[in-house]
Write a protein that binds this DNA or RNA. Sequence first.
DNA 1: GGTTACAAGAAGAACCTCGC
DNA 2: GCGAGGTTCTTCTTGTAACC
Length: 248
Amino acid sequence: MAHRCPNASCPAQLRERILHWGGRGAMDIDGLGDSLVRQIVEQGLVEDLADLYELDHATLAGLERMGDLSARNLLAAFERSKARGFRHALYGLGIRFVGGTVATILAGDFASIEELKEADRERLEAIDGIGPRVAESVVAFFGRPENRRVVERLLENGIVFRRPAGDRRGQGPLAGRAIVLTGSLERFTRAQATEAIEALGGRVAGSVSKKTDYVVAGADPGSKLDRARSLGVEVLDEAGFTALLEAR
DNA sequence: GGTTACAAGAAGAACCTCGC
DNA sequence: GCGAGGTTCTTCTTGTAACC
């Protein structure tokens, strides 16, 4: 049984929200780790996600185990994160039951966060892949004034909460294809491989099933490779994966 | 150079969605 | 209602980068 703190402004919750926001699946802010987040929260330097974008070099460089280089790298990472896009920012908000996949679905169905935050349960439940629990969670999130305020401040700080024009996701040559990654790839990080697949309209799944189209196995593959073989799913090595991307 | 923190990935349990 | 498929969440491990 999981226990969740009901106090949205408690420091522990704020730390977790910031760590989630800076994580790979969200805004991918290099250098924003547990120790640093703990310091900036405990010193009262941030009270919500938007405050991250108002931190300056001198403040960051003065923190424990931080120097000039780390501060500069972190500020550059903050700047890069602003253009991560709607679905990453949406995932980064940490709405319960909204992981990477659900965030992608919502970002594909709504043109902007302004549209999404006004959506009611019925509108959300009408979307493929969104059930009552997720819909209720999204409505509850945007129903809280403090959450709406944070989103507004993030927008003011330049975070992109809008679907780009001409987005091909779900419409490319890999449209409808489910691909599972296992092991380490030499030419791609997981994030880069995921980005390449999604850019061609494909979908990266977390587990192998009969509906999986391909399993891409790098070095030291995990149990997913065994499962793919037992289910007769086509397995690609890195060269095969590269060829698949280039052929499309 | 040692220490510390972060990044990246694997694995599995819990839980959600959807079709039958 | 149930089961299959899929996603989320958490924990653990290992390698690397940066600070002191």
